[in-house]
């Protein structure tokens, strides 16, 4: 995080990409985009382009990883080598290993693990293009992929970040704000249950700024939640029209 950054927000409170402080980037969600996966989703969140696929519940491989009393959820977050400015090595980085873990822990609370003993669900996330906030967009898409696979869920999980840029708490940071801003707070949330399933932060925030960022991120999540539900319904509405 660079303290000597140029101003990212102008005098009228408009951000580098033309948004207001509490405005989301344009969002597009599509469900059922891959025919081989049990469930899949595609998200375009600003310039982020991310595919998520879910397989299962199915037999675990290798078998010894299966749990006698519950389902095992596995996640792999991976960035394509061409998804960022400088080519990223396709080998999983430490960042990707950590994100895979926190994404798994963000999705697990939504699942009834105990209802599917000895099985596994695998979620694969491929970031095709990254522009800040990929872990959040990945969670939003992955939750849809799991739902599309027909796995019962307590609620959809939706994620969005808030942060601090210049002196302002803002919603949904894009790449430049993420790199030059003062703090980043990604949040994953289950709106119907009022439950936060992922929370991270880096940067420096006063306690009251943190509270504001957390609330702002949750408000952003609620807006994305509506688009998420709509995307899920849309897939099945199309199927109905074909049937007639």
């Amino acid at each position: 995080m660079n303290e000597k950054s140029e101003k990212l927000i102008d005098k009228k409170g408009i951000r580098g990409d033309g948004r207001k402080a509490d405005e989301l980037r344009p969002l597009k969600l599509q469900v059922g985009v891959l025919s081989n996966a049990d469930g899949s989703a595609y998200i375009e969140h600003g310039k982020n382009k991310i595919l998520a696929a879910a397989f299962g519940p199915r037999e675990m491989h290798p078998k010894h990883l299966a749990q006698p009393d519950r389902m095992v959820l596995r996640c792999r977050y991976h960035m394509a080598p061409f998804s960022v400015q400088e080519r990223k090595s396709p080998a999983p980085s430490r960042r990707e290993v950590e994100l895979s873990k926190v994404i798994k822990e963000a999705l697990e609370p939504a699942l009834f693990l105990e209802l599917y003993p000895r099985t596994g669900v695998d979620v694969f996330v491929e970031v095709l293009q990254a522009d800040g906030g990929t872990r959040c967009a990945a969670i939003t898409a992955a939750a849809l992929a799991i739902a599309d696979a027909g796995v019962p869920m307590r609620d959809l999980v939706v994620a969005c970040a808030a942060g601090k840029v210049d002196d302002t708490v803002v919603l949904d940071l894009y790449d430049a704000e993420d790199k030059l801003g003062l703090a980043d707070v990604p949040v994953a949330y289950m709106p119907s249950l009022n439950a936060v399933t992922l929370l991270q932060m880096d940067g420096i925030l006063k306690p009251n700024e943190f509270e504001k960022a957390l609330n702002m991120a949750m408000e952003g999540c609620k807006k994305i939640y509506e688009i998420q539900k709509e995307a899920l319904k849309t897939k099945y509405m199309v199927v109905k029209e074909v049937d007639e």
Partner: peptide, 10 residues
């Protein structure tokens, strides 16, 4: 001031 947060666990 808070400078890092991490939630963990399922």
């Amino acid at each position: 001031n808070i400078c890092a947060i991490q939630k963990g666990g399922n």
